[in-house]
Design a protein around this nucleic acid. Structure first.
Lengths: 242, 242
DNA sequence: CATCATACTAAACGCATGTTCAACACGGAG
DNA sequence: CTCCGTGTTGAACATGCGTTTAGTATGATG
Protein backbone atom coordinates (compact mmCIF):
# COMPACT_ATOMS: atom_id res chain seq x y z
CA UNK A 1 0.00 0.00 0.00
CA UNK A 2 3.04 2.20 0.20
CA UNK A 3 4.99 3.20 -2.86
CA UNK A 4 8.40 3.33 -1.25
CA UNK A 5 11.52 2.57 -3.19
CA UNK A 6 11.96 -0.60 -1.19
CA UNK A 7 10.11 -3.42 -2.90
CA UNK A 8 9.42 -4.97 0.44
CA UNK A 9 5.76 -4.00 0.32
CA UNK A 10 4.87 -6.14 -2.66
CA UNK A 11 7.21 -8.94 -1.77
CA UNK A 12 5.66 -12.27 -0.95
CA UNK A 13 4.43 -12.56 2.60
CA UNK A 14 7.00 -15.15 3.58
CA UNK A 15 9.79 -12.83 2.54
CA UNK A 16 8.20 -9.91 4.33
CA UNK A 17 7.95 -11.98 7.48
CA UNK A 18 11.56 -13.04 7.25
CA UNK A 19 12.80 -9.51 6.73
CA UNK A 20 10.74 -8.22 9.62
CA UNK A 21 12.13 -11.00 11.76
CA UNK A 22 15.70 -10.10 10.86
CA UNK A 23 15.04 -6.53 11.91
CA UNK A 24 13.42 -7.47 15.20
CA UNK A 25 15.82 -10.28 16.07
CA UNK A 26 18.78 -8.08 15.26
CA UNK A 27 17.51 -5.11 17.22
CA UNK A 28 16.08 -6.72 20.34
CA UNK A 29 17.26 -10.31 20.23
CA UNK A 30 15.44 -13.55 19.63
CA UNK A 31 13.91 -14.00 23.06
CA UNK A 32 12.69 -10.44 23.39
CA UNK A 33 10.87 -10.64 20.09
CA UNK A 34 7.42 -12.18 19.85
CA UNK A 35 5.88 -13.82 16.84
CA UNK A 36 3.04 -11.35 17.13
CA UNK A 37 5.42 -8.42 16.79
CA UNK A 38 6.95 -9.84 13.66
CA UNK A 39 3.56 -10.63 12.22
CA UNK A 40 2.38 -7.09 12.85
CA UNK A 41 5.50 -5.66 11.22
CA UNK A 42 4.93 -7.82 8.18
CA UNK A 43 1.22 -7.03 8.11
CA UNK A 44 0.09 -10.61 8.51
CA UNK A 45 -1.42 -12.78 11.19
CA UNK A 46 0.70 -14.65 13.70
CA UNK A 47 -0.69 -17.90 12.41
CA UNK A 48 0.80 -17.26 9.00
CA UNK A 49 4.25 -16.98 10.47
CA UNK A 50 3.95 -20.47 11.89
CA UNK A 51 2.36 -21.75 8.73
CA UNK A 52 5.30 -20.64 6.64
CA UNK A 53 8.16 -21.42 8.97
CA UNK A 54 6.80 -24.14 11.22
CA UNK A 55 7.81 -22.46 14.43
CA UNK A 56 9.57 -19.43 15.79
CA UNK A 57 12.77 -21.43 15.84
CA UNK A 58 12.21 -22.36 12.21
CA UNK A 59 11.88 -18.69 11.42
CA UNK A 60 15.18 -18.04 13.11
CA UNK A 61 16.78 -20.77 11.07
CA UNK A 62 15.39 -19.20 7.90
CA UNK A 63 16.82 -15.82 8.90
CA UNK A 64 20.17 -17.40 9.63
CA UNK A 65 20.14 -19.14 6.30
CA UNK A 66 19.21 -15.94 4.48
CA UNK A 67 22.09 -14.08 6.03
CA UNK A 68 24.57 -16.87 5.54
CA UNK A 69 23.70 -17.20 1.87
CA UNK A 70 23.94 -13.46 1.37
CA UNK A 71 27.30 -13.29 3.10
CA UNK A 72 28.76 -16.36 1.52
CA UNK A 73 28.07 -15.60 -2.11
CA UNK A 74 31.30 -14.94 -3.91
CA UNK A 75 31.11 -11.33 -4.96
CA UNK A 76 33.70 -11.14 -7.71
CA UNK A 77 36.31 -13.28 -9.40
CA UNK A 78 38.86 -12.25 -6.81
CA UNK A 79 39.53 -14.74 -4.08
CA UNK A 80 39.57 -11.78 -1.70
CA UNK A 81 37.51 -12.08 1.46
CA UNK A 82 33.91 -12.21 0.41
CA UNK A 83 32.39 -11.72 3.81
CA UNK A 84 34.51 -8.75 4.79
CA UNK A 85 33.76 -7.16 1.45
CA UNK A 86 30.02 -7.63 1.82
CA UNK A 87 30.17 -6.37 5.37
CA UNK A 88 31.86 -3.21 4.15
CA UNK A 89 29.11 -2.68 1.62
CA UNK A 90 26.56 -3.11 4.40
CA UNK A 91 28.37 -0.66 6.61
CA UNK A 92 28.35 1.85 3.80
CA UNK A 93 24.57 1.79 3.62
CA UNK A 94 23.34 1.35 7.15
CA UNK A 95 19.88 2.67 6.39
CA UNK A 96 19.41 -0.32 4.13
CA UNK A 97 21.57 -3.03 5.67
CA UNK A 98 21.78 -1.96 9.27
CA UNK A 99 19.38 -4.70 10.26
CA UNK A 100 21.61 -7.31 8.68
CA UNK A 101 24.60 -6.00 10.59
CA UNK A 102 22.73 -6.20 13.84
CA UNK A 103 21.48 -9.66 13.08
CA UNK A 104 24.93 -10.83 12.12
CA UNK A 105 26.32 -9.57 15.40
CA UNK A 106 23.67 -11.36 17.43
CA UNK A 107 24.29 -14.55 15.47
CA UNK A 108 27.95 -14.45 16.40
CA UNK A 109 27.29 -13.59 20.01
CA UNK A 110 24.61 -16.22 20.47
CA UNK A 111 26.81 -18.89 18.98
CA UNK A 112 24.10 -20.08 16.63
CA UNK A 113 25.00 -22.68 14.09
CA UNK A 114 24.90 -20.15 11.29
CA UNK A 115 27.08 -17.83 13.32
CA UNK A 116 29.62 -20.59 13.69
CA UNK A 117 29.69 -21.17 9.96
CA UNK A 118 30.16 -17.49 9.27
CA UNK A 119 32.88 -17.16 11.84
CA UNK A 120 34.76 -20.12 10.45
CA UNK A 121 34.50 -18.69 7.00
CA UNK A 122 35.71 -15.28 8.07
CA UNK A 123 38.56 -16.87 9.94
CA UNK A 124 39.54 -18.84 6.87
CA UNK A 125 39.44 -15.77 4.69
CA UNK A 126 41.48 -13.77 7.16
CA UNK A 127 44.06 -16.52 7.51
CA UNK A 128 44.36 -16.85 3.74
CA UNK A 129 44.83 -13.12 3.32
CA UNK A 130 47.50 -13.01 5.97
CA UNK A 131 49.25 -16.01 4.46
CA UNK A 132 49.32 -14.15 1.16
CA UNK A 133 50.69 -11.08 2.89
CA UNK A 134 53.43 -13.07 4.53
CA UNK A 135 54.26 -14.79 1.27
CA UNK A 136 54.67 -11.56 -0.66
CA UNK A 137 56.52 -9.87 2.17
CA UNK A 138 53.97 -7.23 3.07
CA UNK A 139 53.19 -8.81 6.42
CA UNK A 140 55.32 -10.15 9.21
CA UNK A 141 55.60 -13.85 9.88
CA UNK A 142 54.30 -15.19 13.15
CA UNK A 143 55.33 -17.89 15.56
CA UNK A 144 51.71 -19.10 15.51
CA UNK A 145 50.03 -18.05 12.26
CA UNK A 146 46.78 -19.86 12.92
CA UNK A 147 46.29 -18.27 16.30
CA UNK A 148 47.30 -14.89 15.02
CA UNK A 149 44.63 -15.15 12.36
CA UNK A 150 42.12 -15.98 15.05
CA UNK A 151 43.10 -13.01 17.16
CA UNK A 152 42.99 -10.64 14.22
CA UNK A 153 39.59 -11.94 13.25
CA UNK A 154 38.37 -11.38 16.79
CA UNK A 155 39.79 -7.88 16.77
CA UNK A 156 37.97 -7.11 13.57
CA UNK A 157 34.70 -8.32 15.00
CA UNK A 158 35.02 -6.44 18.28
CA UNK A 159 33.70 -3.09 17.05
CA UNK A 160 30.71 -4.93 15.69
CA UNK A 161 29.87 -6.79 18.86
CA UNK A 162 30.47 -3.80 21.08
CA UNK A 163 28.91 -1.37 18.65
CA UNK A 164 26.65 0.03 21.33
CA UNK A 165 29.53 0.84 23.64
CA UNK A 166 31.50 2.19 20.73
CA UNK A 167 28.65 4.38 19.59
CA UNK A 168 28.18 5.65 23.11
CA UNK A 169 31.81 6.67 23.43
CA UNK A 170 32.01 8.02 19.91
CA UNK A 171 28.73 9.85 19.99
CA UNK A 172 27.85 8.61 16.54
CA UNK A 173 26.59 5.23 15.36
CA UNK A 174 29.24 2.75 14.31
CA UNK A 175 27.68 2.58 10.89
CA UNK A 176 28.50 6.19 10.13
CA UNK A 177 31.18 7.68 7.98
CA UNK A 178 32.46 9.62 10.97
CA UNK A 179 32.98 6.43 12.97
CA UNK A 180 34.83 4.81 10.10
CA UNK A 181 36.99 7.89 9.72
CA UNK A 182 37.81 7.87 13.38
CA UNK A 183 38.62 4.19 13.61
CA UNK A 184 40.82 3.90 10.57
CA UNK A 185 44.03 5.55 11.69
CA UNK A 186 44.38 4.01 15.14
CA UNK A 187 43.84 0.56 13.72
CA UNK A 188 46.30 1.03 10.90
CA UNK A 189 48.81 2.58 13.27
CA UNK A 190 48.55 -0.47 15.45
CA UNK A 191 48.80 -2.86 12.54
CA UNK A 192 51.76 -0.98 11.09
CA UNK A 193 53.95 0.05 14.00
CA UNK A 194 52.47 -1.95 16.83
CA UNK A 195 52.06 -0.37 20.21
CA UNK A 196 55.30 -1.02 22.01
CA UNK A 197 58.47 0.76 20.99
CA UNK A 198 60.70 -2.18 21.78
CA UNK A 199 60.39 -5.94 22.05
CA UNK A 200 61.08 -6.25 25.74
CA UNK A 201 57.65 -7.54 26.63
CA UNK A 202 57.50 -9.87 23.68
CA UNK A 203 60.93 -11.23 24.50
CA UNK A 204 59.97 -11.77 28.11
CA UNK A 205 56.87 -13.67 27.05
CA UNK A 206 58.87 -15.77 24.62
CA UNK A 207 61.31 -16.65 27.36
CA UNK A 208 58.55 -17.44 29.79
CA UNK A 209 56.82 -19.70 27.29
CA UNK A 210 59.97 -21.43 26.08
CA UNK A 211 62.03 -22.09 29.19
CA UNK A 212 60.99 -22.85 32.71
CA UNK A 213 61.38 -19.55 34.47
CA UNK A 214 60.40 -21.00 37.79
CA UNK A 215 63.52 -19.45 39.19
CA UNK A 216 63.63 -15.75 39.73
CA UNK A 217 60.70 -13.43 40.09
CA UNK A 218 57.62 -15.19 41.39
CA UNK A 219 55.45 -12.17 40.68
CA UNK A 220 52.46 -12.53 38.48
CA UNK A 221 52.88 -9.77 36.01
CA UNK A 222 56.08 -9.83 34.07
CA UNK A 223 54.91 -7.74 31.22
CA UNK A 224 56.88 -4.66 32.05
CA UNK A 225 54.71 -1.59 31.72
CA UNK A 226 51.72 -3.81 31.48
CA UNK A 227 49.69 -5.13 28.64
CA UNK A 228 46.81 -2.87 27.73
CA UNK A 229 45.07 -5.98 26.73
CA UNK A 230 42.79 -7.67 29.19
CA UNK A 231 44.07 -11.03 28.15
CA UNK A 232 45.76 -13.22 30.67
CA UNK A 233 49.43 -13.01 31.34
CA UNK A 234 51.85 -15.43 29.83
CA UNK A 235 51.18 -18.38 32.05
CA UNK A 236 53.64 -19.18 34.75
CA UNK A 237 54.53 -22.86 34.46
CA UNK A 238 53.81 -23.23 38.14
CA UNK A 239 50.39 -22.36 39.43
CA UNK A 240 50.35 -22.23 43.17
CA UNK A 241 47.45 -23.99 44.85
CA UNK A 242 45.39 -22.05 47.33
CA UNK B 1 35.49 -9.04 52.85
CA UNK B 2 34.25 -8.52 49.38
CA UNK B 3 35.42 -11.88 48.21
CA UNK B 4 33.00 -14.66 48.83
CA UNK B 5 34.28 -16.68 51.76
CA UNK B 6 30.99 -18.18 52.87
CA UNK B 7 30.37 -21.64 51.40
CA UNK B 8 27.17 -20.72 49.56
CA UNK B 9 25.23 -23.47 51.30
CA UNK B 10 24.99 -21.60 54.57
CA UNK B 11 25.04 -18.15 53.05
CA UNK B 12 21.95 -16.06 53.55
CA UNK B 13 19.20 -16.82 51.12
CA UNK B 14 19.40 -13.46 49.40
CA UNK B 15 23.06 -14.04 48.63
CA UNK B 16 22.38 -17.55 47.42
CA UNK B 17 19.69 -16.25 45.12
CA UNK B 18 21.96 -13.57 43.73
CA UNK B 19 24.80 -15.99 43.10
CA UNK B 20 22.49 -18.45 41.41
CA UNK B 21 21.16 -15.64 39.27
CA UNK B 22 24.64 -14.60 38.20
CA UNK B 23 25.34 -18.16 37.12
CA UNK B 24 22.11 -18.51 35.17
CA UNK B 25 22.12 -15.04 33.66
CA UNK B 26 25.73 -15.46 32.62
CA UNK B 27 25.21 -18.87 31.12
CA UNK B 28 21.88 -18.55 29.36
CA UNK B 29 21.10 -14.85 29.39
CA UNK B 30 18.52 -12.81 31.23
CA UNK B 31 15.50 -13.59 29.07
CA UNK B 32 16.14 -17.29 28.88
CA UNK B 33 16.34 -17.58 32.63
CA UNK B 34 13.18 -17.84 34.71
CA UNK B 35 12.76 -16.77 38.29
CA UNK B 36 11.66 -20.29 39.05
CA UNK B 37 14.96 -21.69 37.79
CA UNK B 38 16.96 -19.36 39.97
CA UNK B 39 14.78 -20.10 42.96
CA UNK B 40 15.26 -23.82 42.48
CA UNK B 41 19.02 -23.39 42.21
CA UNK B 42 19.07 -21.41 45.41
CA UNK B 43 16.72 -23.84 47.12
CA UNK B 44 14.01 -21.29 47.84
CA UNK B 45 10.56 -20.46 46.54
CA UNK B 46 10.07 -18.13 43.58
CA UNK B 47 8.16 -15.75 45.81
CA UNK B 48 11.19 -15.21 47.98
CA UNK B 49 13.16 -14.00 45.00
CA UNK B 50 10.61 -11.28 44.43
CA UNK B 51 10.37 -10.56 48.14
CA UNK B 52 14.08 -9.85 48.36
CA UNK B 53 14.67 -8.10 45.05
CA UNK B 54 11.31 -6.63 44.16
CA UNK B 55 11.26 -8.02 40.66
CA UNK B 56 13.32 -10.00 38.21
CA UNK B 57 14.70 -6.74 36.91
CA UNK B 58 15.65 -5.75 40.44
CA UNK B 59 17.50 -9.02 40.77
CA UNK B 60 19.40 -8.22 37.63
CA UNK B 61 20.29 -4.83 39.02
CA UNK B 62 21.57 -6.46 42.20
CA UNK B 63 23.71 -8.84 40.17
CA UNK B 64 25.08 -5.96 38.15
CA UNK B 65 25.86 -4.05 41.29
CA UNK B 66 27.57 -7.04 42.86
CA UNK B 67 29.80 -7.46 39.85
CA UNK B 68 30.54 -3.78 39.45
CA UNK B 69 31.52 -3.42 43.08
CA UNK B 70 33.75 -6.47 42.89
CA UNK B 71 35.42 -5.25 39.72
CA UNK B 72 35.77 -1.66 40.78
CA UNK B 73 37.41 -2.16 44.14
CA UNK B 74 40.94 -0.91 43.99
CA UNK B 75 43.07 -3.96 44.51
CA UNK B 76 46.34 -2.46 45.61
CA UNK B 77 48.01 0.89 46.05
CA UNK B 78 49.13 0.84 42.45
CA UNK B 79 47.10 2.93 40.10
CA UNK B 80 47.40 0.06 37.65
CA UNK B 81 44.22 -1.14 35.97
CA UNK B 82 42.06 -2.63 38.65
CA UNK B 83 39.51 -4.24 36.40
CA UNK B 84 42.03 -5.92 34.13
CA UNK B 85 43.87 -7.21 37.17
CA UNK B 86 40.73 -8.65 38.75
CA UNK B 87 39.73 -10.16 35.43
CA UNK B 88 43.07 -11.90 35.25
CA UNK B 89 42.53 -13.35 38.69
CA UNK B 90 39.14 -14.58 37.60
CA UNK B 91 40.56 -16.13 34.48
CA UNK B 92 43.13 -17.92 36.57
CA UNK B 93 40.44 -19.67 38.57
CA UNK B 94 37.58 -20.36 36.17
CA UNK B 95 36.10 -23.06 38.34
CA UNK B 96 35.38 -20.39 40.90
CA UNK B 97 34.87 -17.23 38.91
CA UNK B 98 33.79 -18.55 35.55
CA UNK B 99 30.25 -17.46 36.22
CA UNK B 100 31.37 -13.90 36.84
CA UNK B 101 33.26 -13.86 33.60
CA UNK B 102 30.22 -15.03 31.71
CA UNK B 103 28.00 -12.52 33.44
CA UNK B 104 30.43 -9.72 32.75
CA UNK B 105 30.46 -10.58 29.07
CA UNK B 106 26.68 -10.56 28.84
CA UNK B 107 26.55 -7.24 30.68
CA UNK B 108 28.81 -5.70 28.08
CA UNK B 109 26.99 -7.23 25.18
CA UNK B 110 23.54 -6.31 26.44
CA UNK B 111 24.60 -2.74 27.03
CA UNK B 112 23.19 -2.70 30.53
CA UNK B 113 23.84 0.33 32.66
CA UNK B 114 26.36 -1.55 34.76
CA UNK B 115 28.07 -2.78 31.63
CA UNK B 116 28.41 0.78 30.45
CA UNK B 117 30.01 1.83 33.71
CA UNK B 118 32.45 -1.04 33.57
CA UNK B 119 33.33 -0.36 29.98
CA UNK B 120 33.96 3.29 30.67
CA UNK B 121 36.15 2.41 33.59
CA UNK B 122 38.13 -0.13 31.59
CA UNK B 123 38.53 2.37 28.81
CA UNK B 124 39.79 4.96 31.26
CA UNK B 125 42.27 2.55 32.76
CA UNK B 126 43.50 1.48 29.37
CA UNK B 127 43.88 5.05 28.20
CA UNK B 128 45.78 6.00 31.33
CA UNK B 129 48.13 3.08 30.95
CA UNK B 130 48.82 3.91 27.33
CA UNK B 131 49.39 7.54 28.21
CA UNK B 132 51.94 6.42 30.75
CA UNK B 133 53.57 4.18 28.19
CA UNK B 134 53.80 7.02 25.71
CA UNK B 135 55.17 9.35 28.34
CA UNK B 136 57.97 7.02 29.36
CA UNK B 137 58.73 6.07 25.79
CA UNK B 138 57.71 2.43 25.90
CA UNK B 139 54.76 2.96 23.59
CA UNK B 140 54.29 4.76 20.32
CA UNK B 141 52.40 8.00 20.14
CA UNK B 142 49.20 8.07 18.13
CA UNK B 143 47.49 10.59 15.93
CA UNK B 144 44.31 9.91 17.89
CA UNK B 145 45.16 8.62 21.37
CA UNK B 146 41.59 8.50 22.64
CA UNK B 147 40.35 6.44 19.76
CA UNK B 148 43.36 4.19 19.90
CA UNK B 149 42.59 3.48 23.54
CA UNK B 150 39.04 2.62 22.54
CA UNK B 151 40.16 0.24 19.84
CA UNK B 152 42.67 -1.47 22.12
CA UNK B 153 40.03 -1.84 24.79
CA UNK B 154 37.70 -3.38 22.25
CA UNK B 155 40.43 -5.74 21.11
CA UNK B 156 41.03 -6.86 24.65
CA UNK B 157 37.36 -7.57 25.16
CA UNK B 158 36.90 -9.48 21.93
CA UNK B 159 38.15 -12.87 23.18
CA UNK B 160 35.76 -12.52 26.06
CA UNK B 161 32.70 -11.74 23.99
CA UNK B 162 33.50 -14.35 21.39
CA UNK B 163 34.73 -16.87 23.91
CA UNK B 164 32.45 -19.54 22.52
CA UNK B 165 33.81 -19.17 19.00
CA UNK B 166 37.31 -18.99 20.36
CA UNK B 167 36.85 -22.10 22.45
CA UNK B 168 35.41 -23.91 19.47
CA UNK B 169 38.39 -23.09 17.28
CA UNK B 170 40.92 -23.67 20.03
CA UNK B 171 39.36 -26.86 21.30
CA UNK B 172 39.81 -25.72 24.88
CA UNK B 173 37.84 -23.24 26.97
CA UNK B 174 39.08 -19.68 26.91
CA UNK B 175 39.52 -19.81 30.66
CA UNK B 176 42.23 -22.42 30.44
CA UNK B 177 45.97 -22.11 30.78
CA UNK B 178 46.36 -23.58 27.33
CA UNK B 179 44.23 -20.86 25.79
CA UNK B 180 46.17 -18.16 27.57
CA UNK B 181 49.42 -19.72 26.41
CA UNK B 182 48.23 -19.85 22.87
CA UNK B 183 46.93 -16.29 22.77
CA UNK B 184 49.87 -14.56 24.34
CA UNK B 185 52.46 -14.61 21.59
CA UNK B 186 50.28 -13.59 18.64
CA UNK B 187 48.91 -10.66 20.60
CA UNK B 188 52.30 -9.48 21.76
CA UNK B 189 53.72 -9.95 18.29
CA UNK B 190 51.00 -7.73 16.96
CA UNK B 191 51.45 -5.14 19.66
CA UNK B 192 55.22 -5.15 19.20
CA UNK B 193 55.88 -5.36 15.50
CA UNK B 194 52.47 -4.74 14.06
CA UNK B 195 51.28 -6.78 11.13
CA UNK B 196 52.44 -4.90 8.06
CA UNK B 197 56.09 -4.77 7.16
CA UNK B 198 55.92 -1.25 5.81
CA UNK B 199 53.74 1.82 6.23
CA UNK B 200 52.28 1.92 2.74
CA UNK B 201 48.75 1.27 3.83
CA UNK B 202 48.94 3.60 6.77
CA UNK B 203 50.39 6.33 4.58
CA UNK B 204 47.67 5.84 2.02
CA UNK B 205 45.02 6.14 4.69
CA UNK B 206 46.64 9.24 6.12
CA UNK B 207 46.64 10.84 2.70
CA UNK B 208 43.08 9.86 2.07
CA UNK B 209 41.94 11.30 5.38
CA UNK B 210 44.02 14.48 5.19
CA UNK B 211 43.57 15.68 1.66
CA UNK B 212 40.47 15.74 -0.49
CA UNK B 213 41.04 12.81 -2.79
CA UNK B 214 37.86 13.46 -4.71
CA UNK B 215 39.99 13.56 -7.79
CA UNK B 216 41.57 10.40 -9.03
CA UNK B 217 40.64 6.90 -8.06
CA UNK B 218 36.98 6.55 -7.23
CA UNK B 219 37.51 2.94 -6.23
CA UNK B 220 36.50 1.83 -2.81
CA UNK B 221 39.42 -0.09 -1.52
CA UNK B 222 42.73 1.72 -1.49
CA UNK B 223 44.30 -0.30 1.24
CA UNK B 224 46.82 -2.14 -0.87
CA UNK B 225 46.93 -5.80 0.03
CA UNK B 226 43.80 -5.39 2.03
CA UNK B 227 43.13 -4.87 5.66
CA UNK B 228 42.59 -8.12 7.51
CA UNK B 229 40.32 -6.17 9.68
CA UNK B 230 36.64 -6.13 8.91
CA UNK B 231 36.46 -2.45 9.68
CA UNK B 232 35.37 -0.03 7.06
CA UNK B 233 37.74 1.52 4.64
CA UNK B 234 39.00 5.03 5.06
CA UNK B 235 35.92 6.91 3.99
CA UNK B 236 35.76 8.65 0.72
CA UNK B 237 34.75 12.24 1.43
CA UNK B 238 31.92 12.01 -1.07
CA UNK B 239 29.25 9.40 -0.61
CA UNK B 240 27.15 8.93 -3.66
CA UNK B 241 23.39 9.19 -3.16
CA UNK B 242 21.24 6.14 -3.57
C1' DC C 1 2.60 -12.55 77.86
C1' DA C 2 1.41 -9.97 73.53
C1' DT C 3 3.34 -7.55 69.56
C1' DC C 4 5.57 -6.93 65.55
C1' DA C 5 8.81 -7.19 61.96
C1' DT C 6 11.28 -10.49 59.16
C1' DA C 7 12.06 -14.74 56.42
C1' DC C 8 9.70 -17.67 53.96
C1' DT C 9 6.10 -20.53 51.36
C1' DA C 10 1.92 -22.60 48.73
C1' DA C 11 -1.29 -21.33 45.84
C1' DA C 12 -3.22 -18.71 42.68
C1' DC C 13 -3.78 -14.65 39.42
C1' DG C 14 -3.38 -12.38 35.17
C1' DC C 15 -1.13 -12.23 31.18
C1' DA C 16 1.72 -12.93 27.07
C1' DT C 17 3.54 -16.39 24.69
C1' DG C 18 4.03 -20.08 20.82
C1' DT C 19 1.05 -22.82 18.58
C1' DT C 20 -3.29 -25.20 16.74
C1' DC C 21 -7.62 -25.41 14.51
C1' DA C 22 -11.46 -24.74 11.65
C1' DA C 23 -12.83 -21.94 8.29
C1' DC C 24 -12.58 -18.75 4.28
C1' DA C 25 -10.85 -16.83 -0.32
C1' DC C 26 -9.31 -17.83 -4.59
C1' DG C 27 -7.12 -19.46 -8.69
C1' DG C 28 -6.13 -23.33 -11.72
C1' DA C 29 -7.43 -28.39 -13.16
C1' DG C 30 -10.77 -31.87 -14.22
C1' DC D 1 -19.43 -26.18 -11.97
C1' DT D 2 -16.77 -28.82 -8.76
C1' DC D 3 -12.55 -29.94 -6.64
C1' DC D 4 -8.39 -29.16 -4.55
C1' DG D 5 -4.25 -26.94 -2.97
C1' DT D 6 -2.31 -22.83 -1.27
C1' DG D 7 -2.39 -18.52 1.31
C1' DT D 8 -4.55 -16.51 4.96
C1' DT D 9 -7.21 -15.50 9.08
C1' DG D 10 -9.67 -15.00 13.91
C1' DA D 11 -10.28 -17.40 17.72
C1' DA D 12 -8.95 -20.38 20.94
C1' DC D 13 -5.72 -23.46 23.55
C1' DA D 14 -2.14 -24.78 26.69
C1' DT D 15 1.70 -23.33 28.99
C1' DG D 16 5.03 -20.87 31.44
C1' DC D 17 5.89 -16.55 33.01
C1' DG D 18 6.48 -12.69 36.70
C1' DT D 19 4.10 -11.41 40.37
C1' DT D 20 0.55 -11.14 44.27
C1' DT D 21 -1.72 -12.67 48.16
C1' DA D 22 -2.60 -14.72 52.29
C1' DG D 23 -0.65 -17.09 55.52
C1' DT D 24 2.93 -19.58 58.75
C1' DA D 25 7.04 -19.82 61.56
C1' DT D 26 10.49 -17.44 64.21
C1' DG D 27 12.71 -14.61 67.06
C1' DA D 28 13.51 -10.13 69.06
C1' DT D 29 11.18 -6.38 71.80
C1' DG D 30 7.79 -4.08 74.84
Amino acid sequence: MNMRSVPLEDATAAVRIREAAIVRFGRQGFERTSVRQIAADAGVSPALVIHHFGSKEGLRAACDEALVSQLMTEKSKTEAPAIAETMREWLDRPERFGAYIDYFATMLADGSEGGNRLFDRMLGETAAMIDRGVADGTMHASADPEMRAVMITLNGLAPLLLRDQLARVLGVPVTSAAAARRMTLPILELYTHGLYTDSRILDAARAALAGTPSTGTPTRSDKGPGNPNQDPDPPRPESSPT
